[in-house]
């Protein structure tokens, strides 16, 4: 695999592989197949691909009907539409009856960039984590995406997998094995733990060398599964490093930070800090520019870590 690839592209390729292995897989899209990359599957298996047009509500309910008839269904569109446009359809026909539907949404977060606010998906993780029984996964790179998509296909029940638009560096080697519901310690450290998901894992890894030179040893934990959460890894981080920073490309409320803080507050309270999308809607701009607006940069992480270590005392 190249040294960088978008998670959505990895999804497109993974679907084709799964389609070859499992004739029970059906894929739906809502007129964005060339952006979500489900077009790869559509080209190979046209009879098992349905373009639902620009009608996300209809797509989610069709997905539910197919799943109720025994199909493993992947339904894709942009994250902002998959979450906001059809919340009730997902709630009633997929979440409550625990249907075997995998909602794989691309263009998560603000790194959608230039399309602007209407396309920035900053509430989606909160919305999907709010469904009882849903599994929510945010892969860190293309390799983890391939694994997570395969795991979803082979695990019964409703999934939300949030992917991204831009090409991003790989943080894993080819032999990585994703385990659902398990965090991955990417780097050891005793002074503070950075828990990140999605594209922020790479940023966190880039931030820690400078900090180490300053004498701050950071543990970096990738938390790809937001629901169910790896509580043990969080409790260990609190006990062993005494401070936790969460980093996510999502609003501070209802996403990774909220969920981690509940575990920390209940089991082992320690100082925490939260780097996330700030509580406002962003403008158009380049993805990296928008991340900078919200402090979701290597420097932003370093600044937050230093302040947190100071608070920890």
């Amino acid at each position: 695999m190249a040294s960088e690839m978008s998670t959505r592209e990895a999804y497109g390729h993974a679907l084709v592989e799964l389609g070859k292995e499992n004739e029970n897989i059906v894929v739906l899209d809502a007129d964005l197949s060339r952006s979500t990359m489900t077009s790869f599957f559509a080209a190979q298996f046209p009879e098992r691909f349905f373009d639902c047009g620009i009608a996300e509500q209809n797509m989610m309910s069709i997905a539910a009907g197919l799943a109720a008839s025994g199909k493993t269904v992947f339904a894709s569109t942009f994250a902002v539409f998959a979450s906001g446009r059809c919340y009730d359809q997902v709630r009633m026909s997929i979440a409550q009856p625990r249907q075997n539907v995998k909602i794989v949404a691309t263009h998560g977060g603000v790194t959608v960039g230039e399309d602007g606010f209407s396309h920035h998906s900053i509430e989606d993780l909160a919305l999907f984590c709010s469904f009882p029984g849903f599994t929510v996964v945010v892969p860190a790179d293309a390799i983890e995406t391939t694994q997570a998509v395969r795991t979803a296909a082979n695990t019964y029940g409703p999934f939300y997998i949030r992917l991204s638009r831009p090409k991003t560096p790989l943080v894993y080697a080819d032999n990585y094995r994703f385990v659902l519901g398990k965090a991955v310690t990417m780097r050891g450290g005793k002074d503070v733990t950075i828990i990140a998901c999605g594209l922020m894992v790479d940023k966190a890894l880039q931030a820690v060398d400078d900090l180490a030179r300053e004498g701050i040893e950071c543990r970096v934990v990738n938390m790809p599964t937001l629901k169910p959460l790896d509580e043990d890894a969080i409790i260990r981080a609190a006990e062993e490093t005494g401070a936790i920073l969460t980093v996510e490309e999502h609003l501070q409320h209802g996403g990774l930070g909220s969920r981690v803080s509940q575990v920390v507050a209940k089991h082992h309270p320690v100082p925490m800090s939260f780097l996330a999308i700030k509580d406002f809607y962003s403008s158009s701009g380049k993805g990296e520019e928008l991340l900078e607006v919200h402090g979701l940069t290597v420097e932003g992480i370093q600044k937050e870590v230093r302040a947190l270590v100071e608070r920890k005392g």
Partner: peptide, 30 residues
């Protein structure tokens, strides 16, 4: 549908059953 034998769809929020039915109908074709 998760509770009652013979009930094919969880419903109550309106407007969704026809789409659900399309999904079942397409599965028959596949």
């Amino acid at each position: 549908m998760a509770t009652t034998p013979g009930v094919e769809m969880t419903a109550g929020a309106l407007g969704q059953g026809l789409s659900f039915g399309i999904g079942i109908a397409l599965a028959a074709r596949l």
